[in-house]
Design a protein around this nucleic acid. Structure first.
Lengths: 224, 224
DNA sequence: AGAAGTCCGTTGTAATTACAACATCTGGAG
DNA sequence: CTCCAGATGTTGTAATTACAACGGACTTCT
């Protein structure tokens, strides 16, 4: 766990915390790190979520798998990012999502429940943990608002333009990279991969955008 | 504002707060109440969101309106419910949603920014406000996970079954009411109203469910 | 080099949806 | 009661999508 201290301190949960304080917090939160292989379930839908997770190494996706076998990628996780915060902050909550690794990964699991349960601030870190959690979950909330924006579009074309223009805005450039490959992007937008790939090429042929793998460029606004 | 004190105290932001304490908190948060007519914008996309809102009377919807004129209902608000929390908790955030009244309404706007900004706990309520906010936003987060679950389904039929079975589970009965009319439900699930109405009737004809206006009954599980 | 696996684009077909238009029903206002 | 507005169900058509299948490009491993 020691070797990941820098990653840990860069996470939103530990924002504004110096190294010795961080180590004390880790003990206070009963931190434990676990290693996973590729395609392993860090958390699985149906389980009780009593811990907040921080991805320390590798990469993972938060996914929802439907009854009919479709999967929806809720978010992609990079080292330093938190997951399952909202479930861990809600007593009795049961996961309806899974967290699946894409590459061999290491995750840190923190028992924040004990910080939230006690009203006393016996441990001086409690207030900071709660503030940091609030900021993080508020950010996640905005992320979901944005995802809903894309998924709320009616056609694949509109979903693509909504997503890609948002990425361009976020990265402040008409040239940008996205973190998803085609299958993942389709799962993120809840559409069929081949249909999406088709639509992407139509947009290219119409001169609206250009791309190569994960590298995109918006050429015209295309009414968005 | 006084007449709404009971509604205010029932909101999640004021959970576990007694009446005199609540009044002090309202002053501390610079509370101001505003009345709106039917179809009025309490908040509009593009604005800065510096306040948390609590609906005190009437009803309203959080909606996202797309470039092409489609609207997606993100949530329906009843008196006592909070809105714009995540935006208010994120410095510099700009609303990408609007809050529109459905009936003449009254809303309370609270400047929580000042509570989050200062690290000192000069006012003893700060800690409680932050804890309550955290619980509320975590709950909203879970709400979004669920909405994503429904919207992530590929067909209108699957979206309907996903949503309706979730409501049945939540209300603990195969017979239940939903808060939306047909157009609103279609906007919530991001599908066409008439197509959805059609699919609903197919499900009825297949003996999978029965309904009358907002009153539904699930008869068979229908593989969900 | 060859084999295996992955990712991506392309195509055709069947199924589903969006959209517009209209019929029916309901409750409220005049 | 009649008229009107809103909500809901129904239908037909054009457009879009899901799904399955395939081939090419690329990577990795042996």
């Amino acid at each position: 766990m020691k070797k990941y201290l820098e990653i840990i301190r860069q996470s939103k949960l530990f924002a504004g915390v110096d190294a010795p304080e961080a180590e004390a917090m880790l003990r206070c939160l009963g931190a434990r790190s676990v290693s996973y292989g590729k395609g392993a379930y860090i958390l699985q839908a149906g389980e009780h979520a009593d811990a907040v997770g921080i991805l320390l190494a590798g990469s993972a996706c938060i996914v929802h798998e439907s009854f009919w076998g479709n999967r929806n990628i809720v978010a992609k996780l990079c080292p330093g990012q938190l997951f399952a915060e909202a479930f861990a902050c809600t007593p009795g909550a049961i996961l309806n999502m899974s967290v699946v690794t894409e590459t061999p990964s290491v995750a840190l699991l923190l028992d924040v429940r004990r910080v939230l349960a006690t009203c006393s601030s016996a441990c001086t870190f409690h207030t900071r943990v709660i503030r940091n959690l609030l900021a993080d979950i508020a950010g996640k909330n905005l992320y979901f608002y944005e995802k809903l924006t894309h998924m709320g579009q009616r056609t694949t074309r509109q979903k693509l333009l909504s997503y890609l223009s948002a990425q361009a805005l976020r990265q402040g450039s008409a040239v940008f990279d996205i973190p998803y490959n085609r299958q993942e992007l389709a799962d993120y937008l809840a559409v069929d991969r081949s249909a999406m790939s088709n639509e992407l090429c139509k947009l290219r042929d119409e001169g609206i955008l250009a791309f190569r793998n994960n590298h995109f460029e918006l050429l015209r606004h295309a009414l968005f």
